[in-house]
Amino acid sequence: MPEVLSKPKTTKKQDSKSNSYDKSIWLQWFEVMYRIRKFEERTLMAYSQQKIRGFCHVYIGQEAIAAGLVTAIRKEDAVVTAYRQHGIALSRGISSRSCMAELFGKETGCVKGKGGSMHFFSAEHRFFGGNGIVGAQIPIGTGIAFAEQYKGTDLLCVTMFGDGAARQGALYESFNMAMNWKLPVIYLVENNGYAMGTSIERTSNVHELYKIGAAFDMPSKPVDAMDPVAVHESLIEAAKYCRQGSGPFFLEMNTYRYRGHSVSDPGNYRSKDELEYYKTLDPVITTESRILTENIANAMEIQSIKDKIHLEIDDAIKFAEESAYPAPEGLYEDNYVQQDYPYIKD
């Protein structure tokens, strides 16, 4: 029922022990976040120029989650997420060129122009998509973890979803089986407060999503996900737990998106005060200022990362623009593995 829209919430600050992390890790966090931020800003620009079409959901505001993911899990671990995925794909190592070309619908994109904004995939980077149906990847990620357990590896699957997806039945079915079978899966909910235009307070009686885990006796934690250190540390703990065969772990990443749900959503359901409050927590800005004020690195080092990213994104845009669209006959590729599949063409 309509009520006062959500007020700025206080995220739970954890003690970040910055001194215990190397300069290289700090700079890595900053670089990952800055790359995503600049990539997404250019994405919005290209969308407004109609070079990118369809549904497009940017990651601006949520970058600290991608940063923590880079340093906390292994390259061989699997990741699956929903359609707000550009940032996660970049953080898994899919190149800016390949991602931008995909947004432009070009044959040089990471899925040859077939997926667009919502469907990036890369087997090489163990990135399992890119799912456009809310919550569908929750059982899929559980199945990816099932396969790792079946094969006897110590790898895990980070299964990401938004707060909106936490209300889908698929979550409850998956949590139950994952606990029952002790599957190596980290369920990571990116709670940005809104399921499209509906605030979390209006979708359920339970507003603190990590508490859902309690119904399954699943270890569960809230995390201040505007802080890459907190994200990193929570994932380290969860990954260790999963790898030793103890079963799934549930992390509620409390974050915020500065833009609307998609490019066509002005986000009018949020107050200016709320947005302004969250801008003071901007993970890219706060991480940069922390690096500088705590003398982890100097301004020149930060600037050289920024310069590198600017060149990289400029190059990605140029690459995407200059690449060709896929040939129309490509429609008939990749529907079946069988090469001579008899399509109906009359």
Partner: peptide, 21 residues
């Protein structure tokens, strides 16, 4: 009787696919 349907495939993102489909 002759019919025109969408292509017997899933629809990819690129504009060239939409046109063909």
């Amino acid at each position: 009787v002759t019919r025109i349907n969408t292509a017997d495939t899933s629809l990819g993102y690129a504009p060239t696919f939409v046109q063909e489909f």
